[in-house]
Amino acid sequence: MVRRKTFHWAWLFFCAIALLNPLQAELEVIAPPGMVRVPGGVYRPLFRSNSDAREIPVAAFALDIHPVTNAGFLDFVRANPRWRRSQVKRLFADENYLKHWAADLEPGEAASMNAPVTWVSWFAAKAFAAWAGKRLPTTVEWELAAAASPSQPEGENDPEFKKLLAVWHSSPSPERLPPIGTGRANYFGIHDLHGLIWEWVADFNTAMVTGDARGDSGLERQLFCGSGSLGAKDVGNYAAFMRFGFRSSLKADYSVHNLGFRCAKNL
């Protein structure tokens, strides 16, 4: 008798879950605070070898509205002593790690609380994201989000936007970085994807340049030789060329003065 009753309840529970599931899915598409939902889409790689896909589908995801600030990173190193400047292992961050901070727990003059944190390695960025319950965006996710101009999701149709990008990419970063969120938000409501810093992505080391198996010296020419850009998808997208070149020059322990990050999350 008891057994039969248990059986019954189990079924009821099962049905309830099945009924609630679509609802739950509906709820999940709302991005967590501080993040926005970037609808899925298609990313068309700038560089393709013959064996690469022409279009890469990207699932919807959440992305931080702003890059991580010095204040945010301070919380992280407070909570995780092994990521403090004096304690970090050389394997995970080179000797430039957080070098503009005044002390382990004090960003100081050169790094205002509201400015994006830079001089952080890929490992540190990844550890921050994990600590925050998030992850780093992938290259395709980042590029999809960053392709949007202030007025439209596909910024490549916006000449004004492309001109702005080119201007930023041809001007050096200021010694002391300005605060986040001063520029216009893009179509998705995201700030500072361009014009403030470069950003780490989870799979930065998939940007192939050297030492590859199958004739990627061709790819290398495309990246670094001016005339090579004629072979690429969009010759006007100078900014994207710069990003690819930059990513492929990075190593995971590098800490650079204008390289920070923001986090992403699955929806």
């Binding site: 690469d52 394997l91 890929w122 080391n205 940007a207 192939m208 030492g211 492929s248």
Partner: peptide, 11 residues
């Protein structure tokens, strides 16, 4: 990333 091995999945 640590070894300096870059890799990318192809179609």
């Amino acid at each position: 990333a640590l070894l300096g091995v870059k890799f990318k999945r192809e179609v």
